[in-house]
Every structure is written in C-alpha cells, then in structure tokens.
Lab assay of single mutants.
Amino acid sequence: QLRFETNGEEQAKKVLEEAKKHNLEAHVTIENGKWVVHVK
C-alpha cells in the first residue's frame, strides 16, 4: 500500500484520478490537516 501526502484537496483529487486510470484502489484520509491518498 502506497501513501501520498498531498498539499490539499486539489492535489489529492489528481492523485485519485491517476490511480483510477491505472485501475488501482485508492482512498483519501485527512491526517493532521493533510490530505493523504492511500493506494493499493
């Protein structure tokens, strides 16, 4: 499982879109005010 700390909602959405293009499972959590994308 990969973990990407992003700078906010915009970047998190871009990472999610990329993951979906590659048929990867991804979800976002907010940790300590940071948007974190988890990709399987």
Rank of each mutant, 00 (worst) to 15 (best):
E18Y: 15
E25N: 09
K21W: 08
A19W: 10
V37H: 00
H27N: 08
K34W: 06
E9T: 04
E25V: 13
N23I: 02
R3A: 05
L16T: 04
E25M: 11
N7M: 12
V28E: 01
A12P: 00
V15R: 04
F4L: 08
K14R: 13
N7D: 15
T29D: 05
L24D: 02
E31F: 06
V28R: 01
K34A: 07
N7H: 10
N32F: 07
E5P: 05
N23F: 10
E10S: 09
E17K: 10
H22Y: 14
Q11I: 07
F4T: 03
L2A: 06
V15K: 05
T6D: 03
E9Y: 14
G8E: 13
R3M: 06
V36R: 01
V39R: 00
L16D: 01
L24Q: 05
T6A: 11
Q1M: 15
E9I: 12
G8N: 15
K14N: 07
Q11Y: 09
I30K: 09
Q11S: 10
W35M: 02
W35D: 01
A19M: 13
K13D: 05
R3P: 03
H27D: 05
V37K: 00
L16R: 02
Q11R: 04
Q1Y: 15
A19I: 11
K34D: 02
E10L: 09
A12N: 01
R3G: 03
E9K: 08
K40L: 14
E18N: 12
E17L: 12
V39Q: 00
E5T: 08
K34Y: 07
K34F: 09
V39T: 03
K14Q: 13
E25K: 09
E25A: 11
E31K: 04
F4A: 03
V28Q: 02
R3C: 11
V28A: 06
G33L: 03
Q11K: 04
N23S: 08
N7R: 10
K20S: 08
K14A: 13
L16N: 01
Q1H: 14
A12E: 01
A12K: 01
A12Y: 05
N32E: 07
E25Y: 12
F4Y: 12
K40R: 12
K13G: 07
Q11W: 11
V39P: 00
K21T: 06
V36I: 14
K40S: 15
V15N: 02
E17P: 00
E18D: 10
A12Q: 01
K20P: 01
E31W: 06
G8L: 10
Q1V: 15
Q1C: 15
W35Y: 08
V15F: 14
G8V: 11
A19Q: 03
H22N: 12
G33P: 00
A19H: 03
H22V: 05
F4V: 11
F4W: 09
Q1G: 14
V28Y: 07
T6Q: 03
H38D: 03
E5R: 05
H22A: 11
T6M: 13
L24H: 06
F4I: 15
V28F: 06
V15A: 07
T6L: 14
E18L: 15
L24N: 03
T6G: 03
E25G: 05
G8Q: 11
K20N: 08
K40A: 13
L2N: 06
K14G: 06
L2Y: 13
V36L: 03
N32P: 00
N23E: 06
E9R: 07
G8H: 12
F4H: 04
G33R: 02
N32L: 05
K21M: 10
H22D: 04
N7W: 12
K40Q: 14
E25Q: 12
L24G: 03
N7F: 12
N23H: 12
E25W: 10
E5S: 04
K40D: 11
T29I: 10
A12C: 09
K20D: 04
F4E: 02
K40W: 15
V15E: 03
K21H: 08
E9S: 07
T6W: 04
V15P: 00
V28S: 03
E25F: 11
H38P: 01
G8I: 12
Q1I: 15
V15S: 03
K13H: 11
K13T: 10
V28M: 12
E5Y: 11
E17V: 08
H27L: 08
V15W: 14
H22E: 05
G33N: 06
G8Y: 13
N7K: 11
N7G: 10
E10G: 06
T29S: 11
K34G: 03
K34E: 03
E10V: 08
K14L: 13
Q1E: 14
N7I: 11
V15G: 02
K21R: 12
E17D: 12
T29K: 06
E25S: 11
V28I: 15
V28D: 00
L16I: 12
E31G: 02
N23C: 11
K21V: 07
A12H: 01
I30G: 02
A12V: 05
H27Y: 15
H27T: 13
G33K: 02
F4G: 02
K34L: 11
A26F: 05
T29P: 00
G33A: 03
V15T: 04
L16H: 03
Q1T: 15
N23D: 07
V36M: 04
I30S: 04
H38V: 15
H22Q: 12
A26D: 00
N23Y: 09
R3V: 10
V37E: 01
E17T: 08
A19N: 01
A26K: 00
E17M: 13
N23P: 01
E9V: 08
H22L: 14
G33W: 02
V39L: 10
